[in-house]
Simulated assay, not measured.
Amino acid sequence: MQIEQNVSADKPARNLLPSRRFNAARWIEHEGSRYRVSAGWFPDGRLAELFIDSDKFGTAMQANADTAAILVSLLLQHGV
């Protein structure tokens, strides 16, 4: 079974990530709040994804951090 990708010139293709990839995590502090930031890379060394967790789960701050990380990850995987 062959899967075709419908890619047009005006729509960039998404670079899919391998199942296993290098990931590094750090704790940072900003305006009195702590965040755990994790980053994953493509095999060629380019940044591919970002995860951000705050120390206050279930808050608007955590929801904003999640949304920002998803947006950055999608942009990176589409070559932006």
Rank of each mutant, 00 (worst) to 15 (best):
M1S: 15
M1L: 15
Q2V: 11
E4A: 12
Q5V: 14
Q5S: 15
Q5F: 13
N6L: 14
S8I: 06
S8M: 03
S8T: 10
A9G: 01
A9C: 05
D10T: 10
D10A: 09
D10V: 05
K11F: 01
A13G: 09
A13M: 13
R14C: 05
R14G: 02
R14F: 03
R14S: 08
R14W: 02
R14A: 09
R14M: 09
R14D: 03
R14T: 09
N15A: 13
N15L: 11
N15I: 09
N15S: 13
L16P: 02
P18I: 01
P18M: 00
R20N: 11
R20L: 08
R21Y: 02
R21Q: 09
F22L: 15
F22C: 11
N23P: 00
N23T: 15
A25Y: 04
R26S: 07
R26P: 01
W27L: 05
W27T: 02
W27K: 02
W27Y: 04
W27S: 00
I28V: 14
E31A: 14
E31M: 11
E31S: 14
E31F: 11
E31K: 15
G32I: 04
G32R: 13
R34Q: 12
Y35Q: 04
Y35S: 05
R36N: 08
A39T: 01
A39Y: 00
A39E: 06
W41A: 05
F42T: 00
P43W: 07
D44C: 03
D44H: 04
G45A: 07
G45Q: 03
G45M: 04
G45I: 00
R46T: 03
R46S: 07
R46E: 05
L47T: 01
A48Q: 06
E49R: 10
E49L: 08
F51W: 14
I52P: 04
I52G: 03
D53Y: 03
D53W: 03
S54G: 10
S54Q: 09
D55E: 12
K56D: 06
F57M: 09
F57C: 01
G58Y: 09
T59M: 10
A60R: 07
A60P: 00
A60M: 03
M61L: 13
M61S: 09
A63T: 07
A63Q: 12
N64I: 05
A65H: 03
D66T: 08
D66S: 10
D66L: 06
T67A: 15
A68L: 15
A68S: 13
A69F: 01
A69P: 03
I70P: 02
I70V: 14
L71S: 11
L71A: 12
V72Y: 11
L74S: 11
Q77M: 05
H78F: 07
H78D: 00
G79T: 02
G79S: 04
G79A: 07
V80A: 08
V80T: 05
V80W: 15
